[in-house]
């Protein structure tokens, strides 16, 4: 599921001097885990409009998953839905780093939990 979140996640808005180009976060040194989850097409269809397709696909590709087309098809085929399900809900980033493109801040991920804490001086006013 983590990947799906990250396609929805940008650097915390209140980080100082980081107001643009902060989405999506870029992965590096990742360690992936796949945890099978039962498919739920209804949820996927409702989730779809919220996704930034391009960001999701680019993130997935940077993680070595090329199952999704770069341009969002009007209606998804069953295979594509399956691929989307896999990317969104089954693919987890267990270890790694996320880097903000805007400010270069690195958020480490350990045990599947990203550390989004900022030091007090890094929080914008």
């Amino acid at each position: 599921m983590l990947v799906s979140i990250l396609s929805l996640f940008s650097s915390p808005q209140f980080r100082e001097n980081c107001t643009s180009n902060n989405f999506p976060l870029v992965f590096s040194e990742v360690e992936l885990v796949v945890r099978p989850v039962p498919e739920n097409q209804e949820f996927l269809k409702r989730f779809l409009p919220k996704l930034e397709w391009r960001a999701l696909v680019e993130t997935a590709r940077s993680l070595g998953n090329e199952s999704l087309p770069l341009i969002q098809p009007e209606t998804l085929t069953d295979d594509q839905l399956k691929a989307l399900h896999h990317v969104l809900l089954e693919l987890h980033v267990e270890q790694g780093n996320m880097t903000c493109k805007g400010c270069g801040h690195v958020y480490p991920i350990s045990n599947g939990i990203p550390n989004m804490l900022l030091a007090e001086h890094e929080v914008g006013r």
Binding site: M1, L8, F9, P12, F23, K50, N111, I113, M116, L118
Partner: peptide, 29 residues
Amino acid sequence: LAEVALEREVEGDLFLQDIGQGFGFRPGT
């Protein structure tokens, strides 16, 4: 988060975050 949530194997995804610092989810998520 680490000691307990992982042992209990919850389904959701977890973030280590100070909510007072604000968070950066996409609008309307």
